[in-house]
């Protein structure tokens, strides 16, 4: 009993001391807080080192999204490369949890330290691919999914990916 009362008094004392501590918050927007590169803000789609869209429309971000705010549709170019025909994020639902980035096998979808995306009209919170796609590689420079995948695309035929042997000549009878 006494211990409990004492503990209350100690917490009163400790809290009181915080009167003299420096505030953790800053005077935003006059003073901008530091946000680490891995801060989870506005979502972008990045490009690979060759400047092509990294997104291969695998749908893993959409399925990982706990609020189901990502919708996309796969399309394929004439050389077999997959890309999203549309890619839509409804930021009015997004909770910036970063699960999509975790799920992305191509480093395409990335969260950025930008969080200033308020709108007066909720409809403007719906971002399409043209709003999401940036021209750079984002946080993971140098990675290109198709360079390690087995699928042939334009300018990368079978056997030309990383760590791949030349295609088999099935007519060979050598043991």
């Amino acid at each position: 009993m006494l211990k409990a009362i004492l503990s209350q008094i100690i917490s009163l004392y400790r809290i009181c001391l915080h009167l003299f501590a420096k505030a953790d918050t800053v005077q935003y927007p006059e003073e901008m807080p530091y946000l680490a590169p891995r801060y989870r803000g506005r979502i972008v789609l990045t490009r690979d080192p060759d400047g092509n869209e990294r997104c291969v429309a695998c749908n893993l971000c959409a399925v990982a999204c706990p609020v189901d705010c990502i919708a996309l549709q796969k399309a394929e170019d004439e050389h077999g490369r997959w890309y999203p025909e549309f890619f839509r994020i409804n930021f009015s639902r997004c909770i910036m949890c970063g699960m999509c980035e975790e799920a992305c096998p191509t480093y395409s979808i990335q969260l950025t330290p930008d969080f200033e995306m308020c709108e007066y009209d909720r409809q403007n919170m719906v971002y399409e691919k043209e709003h999401l796609l940036i021209s750079g590689q984002g946080k993971y420079p140098g990675y290109s999914f198709y360079n390690v995948a087995g699928k042939a695309i334009k300018d990368k035929d079978k056997g030309e990916a990383l760590n791949e042997a030349q295609p088999i000549d099935i007519k060979s009878l050598l043991p």
Binding site: I15, C16, H18, L19, A21, K22, A23, D24, T25, Q27
Partner: peptide, 8 residues
């Protein structure tokens, strides 16, 4: 309350 909670 702000001061006691390290806010402004």
């Amino acid at each position: 309350l702000g001061f006691w909670q390290d806010r402004l």
